[in-house]
Simulated scan of single mutants.
Amino acid sequence: MPEHPGSAIVRQMTPPEIAPLHEDLTFHGPLSEERAARLIRSLLPLDNAHVLDLGCGWAELLLRTLEAAPTATGTGVDLNAADIARATANAQARGLTARASFHATDVAQWQPDKPADAVIVNGATQVWGGDPLHHTTNALTAARSLLRPGGKLLLGEGFWEREPTEAQLAAMPIPRNQYGSLADLVDLAHTHGYRLLAAEQASLDEWDIFENGHGLAWERWLRDNPNSEHAAEIRAKADTSRNYRLRGWRGTLGLAYLTLLAP
Rank of each mutant, 00 (worst) to 15 (best):
A19N: 06
L153A: 08
P164K: 12
E67V: 08
L260N: 10
A85W: 00
S42Y: 02
D53K: 06
L54W: 02
V121N: 12
I234F: 03
P263W: 08
H230P: 02
A49Y: 05
C56E: 08
R162E: 09
R35V: 01
R38N: 07
Y244E: 03
D83L: 05
P149M: 06
P16N: 06
T26V: 10
G57Q: 06
S241V: 13
A108N: 03
I18A: 03
V77P: 13
Q126M: 14
H190T: 10
P16E: 09
D106P: 06
L146G: 10
A262Q: 09
A142V: 06
A49D: 04
L216Y: 11
L153R: 09
L61W: 05
R11H: 13
R247A: 15
D53P: 08
E17C: 07
P226R: 00
D47A: 10
L222W: 00
D117N: 13
G254M: 04
A85P: 05
W249E: 01
L153I: 07
H214G: 06
G248R: 07
T191E: 13
P30L: 00
L258G: 04
T259Q: 03
P30A: 01
A256G: 13
A81G: 07
C56A: 12
W218G: 01
R245L: 10
P15A: 14
P132G: 00
T240C: 03
E200N: 15
A231H: 05
T125H: 04
A256R: 02
R235I: 04
S7Y: 13
G74I: 04
V10A: 00
L258K: 08
R86F: 07
E211N: 12
A116G: 04
P226E: 05
A217N: 02
V10L: 15
A100Y: 04
L246T: 12
R64T: 00
